[in-house]
Design a protein around this nucleic acid. Structure first.
Length: 569
RNA sequence: GCGCUUGUAGCUCAGUUGGAUAGAGUAUCUGGCUACGAACCAGAGGGUCGGGGGUUCGAAUCCCUCCAAGCGCACCA
């Protein structure tokens, strides 16, 4: 697993520290702690391949002007046997470092040798991480928030997997509590309406009004007929739920699978109630004197753990709240199943719940800091520049299945992962179906297809592109070649950043950058050139680029085609 | 009212966690296919980083304040 960017930074860190200690020993710098400094990649390559601010941040400690410190440090550098060929002092006191050609050659040969594993690292050190996402309400179809959450959660899971975490993807099935009762009431009303008429049986105002409920009631009636019409309400509802819920969950599963998401586990809330885990939370809090009774309900002293007000654990009717079940669920994640870290992907409308849940985890003796919540803002679908609220076909809110019927799955997965989770997303339906340069999905896929096409053409001429030599890579010196390699070198770091910051949208940004650099290289540098050595070097660069594109697209589960099907005339 | 989040080019968004002259795409305009895919490339214009203070060598980034938008503040989830 190679990460030459990181290796170069480590090398620089050593060089700098060594140079300073030598300077101190020689009396050129006064004794003192070496302050925290950063090594970064300048935005403008004219400022070198790497730069450090050491001279600026240490000005105070050394009582010297930054430029003077930079001069002293630079005099002490020993660049032999390093990746670097020169340094310079610039601006207010930056020290800029310039890489040797062989570093770039090494990047390409490393990518070729790691192939479809290039980008993987052991950054996460095998830490057990659970990512819980989508967790759509099983009482109905999935909406755009679920679609976004699906893409973000799935891509984050891939990034963390590649970054060396042991990732477990989970869907939490909310198959208990109030919304299931409401589901039962709604099904019951639709079922009775079939036999008694819609004017006789009133539909509950707060029920689920969707067509899907009617369909389930109809399906139930086809099997059981009027058998439950005169049954007692509780039994009728139970039978309806037992029929409809598994079907709904199965529908979630198949819809998500179409969307290329498969979970390691589907965890049912009901099992936490059945096992007594939920009520156990109440007991634990009572024993810690953190729960009390009032108005027939049991309350948790949330104010003692940063809450603004106390929270109900068990309602006066004896049913525990969602909150209590959620505490039990996270206890299960950390203690029963032993995850080191848990990440929940939630809609931003649940943000008020974050501090509450973390506080409650602390209250029962867990560490709320080990739970990270990724909040994502809502999605605006737009068409012709207007926000689309409803589906034209159904007249209801657009569901995930509506969406993936209308636009390619590649586009859906890509678009939903283009923005940092915590910013609202405008999803342009016109753009998603457009097969043109404006559509970033095609732009990236086109780069991949182009590479495949070049290599195929060379093969047709009898050039075995799988057997070309890696010995000529230092011939890659054109600015477009260097720029492309520089970007390719970043992959491992990009994945680590995506994993560390819970920001998988970095991957889509990155891969667009790669495609841009490749197209630019392609236009300027012809691969099929008379000089055999140069041609071989460029073939290797193409292959390396292809791996990078392929690997990222594989992570985000977007197809990397060998040719674009041309739907234009 | 209190809390969380957001505010960067006409539009959609980046900005390497405090660095050098704030960048892409799109839209507008101008160039480039008788050699590997023009679904591409190159160039131009376009900015009070919401406003105002502060912190320091240095701020889109950190602090305060104001403005605007979204979302929360249930014995719903």
């Amino acid at each position: 697993m190679s990460n030459l960017v990181e290796t170069a930074k480590i090398q620089l860190n050593e060089l700098i520290n060594k140079a300073i200690s030598t300077a101190i020993k020689d009396g050129k710098l006064p004794e003192g702690e070496i302050p925290q400094f950063v090594i970064e990649i300048p935005s403008d390559t004219a400022h070198g391949d790497f730069a450090t601010n050491i001279a600026m941040v240490s000005a105070r400690a050394f009582h010297l002007a930054p430029k003077k410190i930079a001069e002293i440090i630079c005099e002490e550098f020993d660049l032999s046997n390093s990746f670097f060929e020169k340094t310079e002092i610039a601006g207010p006191g930056f020290i800029n470092f310039f890489l040797q050609k062989n570093w770039f050659a090494n990047v390409v040969s490393d990518i070729i040798s790691e192939g479809e594993n290039y980008g993987r690292s052991d950054f996460g050190k095998g830490e057990k991480v659970m990512i819980e996402f989508v967790s759509a309400n099983p009482t109905g179809p999935m909406h755009m928030g679920n679609a976004r959450g699906g893409s973000i959660g799935d891509c984050l899971a891939a990034a963390m997997d590649w970054a060396g975490y042991k990732v477990h993807k989970e869907f939490y099935i909310n198959d208990a509590g109030n919304q299931i009762a409401k589901f039962g009431n709604s099904l019951e009303a639709r079922y009775l309406q079939i036999f008694k008429g819609e004017d006789v049986i009133e539909f509950p105002e707060d029920g689920y009004h969707g067509e899907d409920i009617k369909e389930r009631a109809k399906g139930f009636a086809e099997i059981y007929g009027d058998k439950y019409v005169d049954a007692i309400a509780e039994e009728r509802q139970k039978a309806l739920i037992n029929y409809a819920l598994p079907l709904n969950i199965e529908k979630l599963r198949t819809d998500l699978k179409k969307y290329r998401i498969e979970f390691d586990e589907w965890f049912a809330e009901s099992q936490l109630h059945a096992s007594g885990a939920v009520m156990n939370v109440v007991e634990v809090l009572k024993n810690k004197n953190l729960a009390y009774e009032k108005d027939g309900a049991i309350w948790y002293k949330a104010t003692e753990f940063g809450g603004e007000k106390d929270e109900v654990l068990v309602r006066a009717n004896g049913f525990p709240t969602y909150f209590t079940a959620d505490i039990a669920y996270h206890y299960n994640k950390f203690v029963v199943r032993g995850f080191d870290k848990c990440i929940d992907v939630w809609g931003a409308d649940h943000h008020g719940h974050v501090a509450r849940l973390k506080g409650a985890m602390n209250a029962i003796g867990l560490d709320g800091n080990k739970l990270d919540i990724v909040l994502m803002q809502l999605v605006n679908l737009t068409k012709d520049g207007e926000v689309v609220k409803m589906s034209k076909r159904t007249g209801k809110a657009i569901t995930l299945s509506d969406l993936i019927e209308e636009i390619p799955i590649d586009a859906a997965r890509f678009f939903f992962n283009m923005r940092e989770p915590n910013s609202t997303l405008d999803f342009d339906l016109d753009l998603a179906v457009e097969e043109s340069s404006k559509n970033p999905v095609y732009y990236v896929q086109y780069a991949h297809a182009r590479i495949c096409s070049i290599l195929k053409n060379l093969e047709a001429e009898g050039i075995e592109t799988s057997k070309t030599s890696l010995n000529n890579l230092e011939l890659l010196t054109a600015s477009e070649e260097i720029e492309l390699i520089r970007i390719l070198s970043r992959l491992t770091s990009e994945i680590i950043m995506a994993a560390k910051n819970y920001d998988p949208a970095r991957l889509t940004h990155y891969i667009v950058d790669v495609a841009t650099a490749f197209h630019s290289f392609y236009t300027t540098c012809h691969v099929r050139v008379p000089e055999k050595e140069l041609m071989e070097a460029r073939i290797e660069l193409c292959k390396a680029t292809r791996y990078v594109i392929k690997n990222v697209l594989t992570m985000i589960k977007v197809d990397a085609p060998e040719k674009m099907t041309n739907n234009k005339e």
